[in-house]
Write a protein that binds this DNA or RNA. Structure first.
Length: 565
RNA sequence: UGCCCGAUAGUGUAAUUGGCAACACGACAGAUUCUGACUCUGUUAUUCUAGGUUCAAGUCCUAGUCGGGCAGCCA
């Protein structure tokens, strides 16, 4: 899906912009950065940004830094820093340099004094409420702050006093002197520094003034000699301010380019909502396998490659779009189909007895080993042995006493192949007092053994099974989408996104599985044949795996069957 | 009723930058199949509206419509 045919590969608008800037010499190399705020776990939307920034650096033989935008100590924590680094690495990327905006606090401070000296910044004593009032509205211009024309010396002294901790939190701010009448509100003398006594996760209590995003972000980019500062659409209105700071400081001036953030159906992506899901324990944590977080997807069993493919697949544009979640599911199916070893597992067992199964001399049932192909998509994966006897468990769904001709599975009087085993013919059923089928009786055809079948006999269906005596019981967690509606973010009046929480997003059941499945390592995705892709959860214990369902296989029959209802 | 941005099959993205509107996914039909998976074949359907420039407009211009963003001492 991402392997584009040879020849011209279409370039998206950011690559075209880069090509143009390289051609004109505005920049001589590509330097990007991924700049998360460490106030939450990364989600799949961030994965798009990571793939973009690191991917561009790879394509253009440039560099990409990881930089934490840690300018608000009230929200940021070291736990988040660590998870972010782990997620970026797991996705398959390595940053050239690791930075923190907080590393630049001293330089930022010096530059602020430089702007004060140039008469382009001033200390303002307006309260938060007053600042808002003076800012004006979307349709009316703002008014100049009464402190706007303070002298340079006074500004300098007050600003130094701010740094020295002489004023209470919120008492004064440093503002850029731009234009209170600008139609772009970001240019109406934006706040550069606020007084805030909070312990920073890296600088501790060294500072009691902290730079605002607009003042810290572009300057950090500049210090790192970033060429292309790529961000999401909501910062488009900030670009004039980004440019203003670089121009008025006379420093290296990166080009900010905005792209549309990723939205996916049936998911919420806002950090606030994800935090709420965690805090209120609707999910088990940031890495709950239902979460759209990178750590959640990883635990679920998604592979880095599938996520990268997905990000490449959705494209790059300035249009706010929502990607159908089936594309994400397709991406992981496509990858796992190539790499996931196959196993037999039964989720809803029905007893099946082979009445003509050979016995050992001592009267016990013979045990044969089936040589099953590990992965038909990659023969080099080899074979595995699956024990088979005359007493099996099959999927209840795979048997019907009577069924339409379109039903290719087992029915009374019908035949079917046992995957990696024999063709069997069903001649009888056993029912309980309520008339429910509790056992299926079949004969097997010894001439049809898998791999050495010369009988020429063909049957329409193949079903999976496990040997009742050899099967291990394991816990299975069948996951489904977290929400019941396509867009849980837009709610009807009086409802919140939690009203659309899918109560069936996790269903825990027991599966009967072939013995080899006991040895699969945590994180190794496998296919339960005819069912779906599964992956042992970190909750697994030795000999006691817990399997997460990553995604079911496409189910054409299920679609046909449900249409007939 | 301010400023900025956007609009191409159902969804998402292309269109050699003014030159035959295409690709993927979906849906539908079929082939194949020791996974009703995978794979393969076929069908379906697209330039927001109205003007203008031009031999030629998805692309340029004007106006409108619709959608998104912006009034944190958040990022």
């Amino acid at each position: 899906m991402t392997d584009l045919p040879a020849g011209r590969v279409p370039k998206h608008f950011i690559e075209q912009a880069i090509d143009a800037d390289l051609a004109t010499g505005r920049f001589s190399q590509v330097a990007t950065r991924f700049p998360p705020e460490p106030n939450g776990y990364l989600h799949i939307g961030h994965a798009k940004s990571i793939c973009l920034n690191f991917g561009l650096a790879q394509k253009y033989a440039g560099t990409c830094n990881l930089r934490f935008d840690d300018t608000n100590p009230a929200k940021e924590e070291t736990e988040y820093v660590e998870s972010i680094m782990e997620d970026v690495r797991w996705l398959g990327f390595q940053w050239d340099r690791l930075h923190y905006a907080s590393d630049y606090f001293e330089q930022l401070y010096d530059w602020a004094e430089q702007l004060i000296l140039a008469g382009k910044a001033y200390v303002c004593d307006l309260t938060g409420d007053q600042t808002r009032q003076y800012r004006g509205t979307l349709t009316e211009p703002g008014q100049d702050s009464p402190y706007r024309d303070r002298g340079v010396q006074e500004n300098l002294e007050l600003f130094r006093g701010m740094r020295a901790g002489q004023y209470a939190d919120g008492l004064r701010t440093l503002r850029a002197k731009i234009d209170m009448a600008s139609p772009n509100l970001n240019l109406r003398d934006p706040v550069m520094y606020r007084i805030l006594r909070a312990t920073h996760h890296r600088t501790g209590d060294t500072w009691c003034i902290y730079p605002m995003y607009d003042w810290a972000h572009g300057q950090s980019d500049s210090l790192e000699k970033i060429s292309f500062s790529i961000c999401t659409l909501e910062f488009e209105n900030h670009r004039p301010l980004y440019d203003w700071f670089c121009l008025n400081l006379g420093i290296h001036h990166p080009r900010q380019i905005e792209f549309a953030r990723l939205n996916v159906t049936y998911m919420v992506m806002s950090k606030r909502k994800l935090l709420q899901l965690v805090k209120e324990k609707h999910v088990s944590g940031w890495d709950d396998p239902r979460m759209p977080t990178i750590s959640g997807l990883r635990r679920r069993g998604y592979t880095p490659e599938s996520l990268r493919n997905f990000c490449a697949d959705v494209g790059m544009a300035k249009f706010n779009s929502t990607i159908d979640i089936v594309r994400l599911e397709n991406a992981v199916r496509e990858h796992l189909n190539r790499v996931a070893p196959r196993y037999l597992a039964v989720l809803d067992p029905l007893k099946l007895t082979i009445t003509n199964w050979p016995k050992n001399p001592d009267g016990s049932a013979e045990v044969q080993l089936s040589h099953a192909v590990s992965n038909p998509e990659s023969p080099e994966a080899g074979l595995r042995d699956v024990p088979m006897t005359g007493s099996l468990l099959i999927e209840r769904d795979d048997f019907r006493e009577q069924a339409p001709s379109k039903f290719f599975r087992l029915k009374l009087g019908g035949a079917v192949r046992l995957r990696a085993g024999y063709i069997i013919d069903c001649h009888d059923v056993v029912k309980d007092a309520d008339g429910k089928v509790i056992e299926v009786l079949c004969t097997y055809d010894p001439s049809t053994k898998s791999g050495e079948d010369l009988s020429g006999r063909k049957v329409k269906g193949t079903i999976h099974w496990v040997s009742a005596a050899h099967a291990a019981q394991v816990e299975v967690r069948n996951y489904d989408r977290l929400f019941t509606v396509e867009n849980p973010e837009s709610t009807e009046a009086g409802k919140t996104f939690l009203d659309y929480f899918n109560p069936d997003s996790l269903r825990v059941t027991t599966a009967w599985v072939e013995p080899a499945l006991l040895n699969v390592e945590v994180g190794q995705a496998v296919q339960f044949e005819r069912l779906g892709y599964y992956c042992p959860d970190p909750d697994s214990k030795p000999g006691q795996p817990v399997f997460n369902r990553i995604v079911p296989l496409r189910d054409t029959w299920g679609k046909i069957a449900s249409k007939e209802d």
